[in-house]
Amino acid sequence: MSKVICPPNVLEEIRLDELLKRVIELKHEGLRLAQACAAYAQGKLELSYSFANDETYELTTLRVIADVDEEVPSITEIIPAAVFYENEMKEMFDVKIQQLSLDYDKKLYRIEEDAPLLPESVKEERRAAAAAAGDAAQAAEEEKKEEAQD
């Protein structure tokens, strides 16, 4: 009979500013980055970073809940192998990941549609906000022109 060890998966909810600290700690415990992914639930982004222990088969998942437009630090400086996971998160959910070591700039899969897995409602809000900002900028420019004409 082979040795079977099936520990339950660990889910650890942490704040965004604790992320890098916990990732460094887990790395020094000798865990392997198994996966990183994003999900959208209840108006927030859920980022999961899973670390696997190859001896006990325990899977520790760090869960960060971030706002849709919140900036998230990249863990690629600590674990270079995370580069494809983070690029995928950036492309699929438009997570604002900062300081990626190799930034494909949403060209990993080269999808034409922007952030395909983000719900339409969020994207519409964004477009409305962008349009409003655009209107404001246009108005400001027109004002400037008028001032110049005056």
């Binding site: 009979m1 082979s2 040795k3 079977v4 060890i5 099936c6 392997r32 696997a52 190859d54 001896e55 088969y57």
Partner: peptide, 16 residues
């Protein structure tokens, strides 16, 4: 040494 089958899903716990 990682082989996820030793995690023991499906019938793998009963196999050597």
């Amino acid at each position: 040494p990682s082989d996820t089958r030793t995690r023991g899903y499906e019938a793998y716990p009963q196999i050597d």
